[in-house]
Design a protein around this nucleic acid. Sequence first.
DNA 1: TAGATTGTTAATCGATTAACAATC
DNA 2: TAGATTGTTAATCGATTAACAATC
Lengths: 215, 215
Amino acid sequence: MEEKEISRAVISRLPRYLHYLGELDDRGVERISSQELSEQMNVTASQIRQDLNNFGGFGQQGYGYNVRFLYEEIGKILGLDKTHNLILVGAGNLGQALAGYENFGKRGFIIRGIFDKNERIVGEKIRNIPIMSMRHMTDFVKENNIDIAVIAIPKLAAVEVAEELSTCGIKAIWNFSHVDLKVPQHIVVENVHLSESLMKLSYNIREKECRSEEQ
Amino acid sequence: MEEKEISRAVISRLPRYLHYLGELDDRGVERISSQELSEQMNVTASQIRQDLNNFGGFGQQGYGYNVRFLYEEIGKILGLDKTHNLILVGAGNLGQALAGYENFGKRGFIIRGIFDKNERIVGEKIRNIPIMSMRHMTDFVKENNIDIAVIAIPKLAAVEVAEELSTCGIKAIWNFSHVDLKVPQHIVVENVHLSESLMKLSYNIREKECRSEEQ
DNA sequence: TAGATTGTTAATCGATTAACAATC
DNA sequence: TAGATTGTTAATCGATTAACAATC
């Protein structure tokens, strides 16, 4: 639909707009100006208007933005108006944590099946979702219209699983393993590298200490 | 130590350099040029050299970089040469997953205690780390030289906990709750907002579909 | 109509890439 | 010394901010 490619930076701010608009809506706020929103979110009003105008004019001069309307439009931009079928690969601690997240379901991300290489837990259920054998993963993906695979297994296994998934029509991989997966271009990969996040935190501690010592 | 502020973008690439250098070292590679590394990592050689030279000259003209040496220097920059004492707030699925991550310990991030508001599990242990009552959290932080608190609880509780933590000498918060915490300036906050990551993924699926339809 | 606030263009700022002199 | 590759300066590109005309 859209012509020009929209920058990563803009996209990564959309969920945060959605979040704040959702809260405003919950509090019964009907309209908001870019100025007000910018103060709450600690960004510039100009940035908000620029970001939104990548996707169209959602506001009205002299009025601002309708909170509910903007919330829903951003939801649509992010594809939250559609249901996504997920599988979860890896029923370890992290996998279980992800399976337990109720928010995902609310946003239309539904886990349809869990796969684990440990045959002893195959047949069990987590949150009423069956754990199945890895052998059946690709067939399950094909037969159940699965869009997204969540990879929550160690990195060596992750590389193999990503390869298998590449061949069976998956659209995206949400990767929690600490490795850069190589997949065909038509598959989207979104990485959550927790240890990288923790290292950034560590850097910032050190940096802040140095700074305060200087003074 | 360093004079000029180093940009977020640079910092967020350091863990990835570390990762690749670690793998090279494991494979016994002794030296590497920015050119070679750039090909493996899918970035420009120029960017690698620019990034590194924010922190000093780690290479040698005509030779390149010593893998082991660079690995350790980046580790130091990221503060991985020091041990960090952590507490984990929230012993739910996510908390347990985080407690189980052996990689963190290897990098010097040691979880010293777990806190949960569910008094029934207080006294139990996860990976040999005791679960304690929330009432004792601030004292524990003070007495055990805790630098980092990992917040893995729902957002309402998270806001309160962050406030408590602000008063007892914590240096940083690793925040997994879906809320922007407001803490004093001297405290570092690093957010892991999983639902935002999933929304970005969702956007990219939609975007890629539109693009392929166009052709 | 007057006031407010958007949408959008122009200016600025910062980050990335290219180029090359320095040097191992 | 010749070749390679860094460290660093300059050029380009992109993203953010400022400004303001359009318009509700």
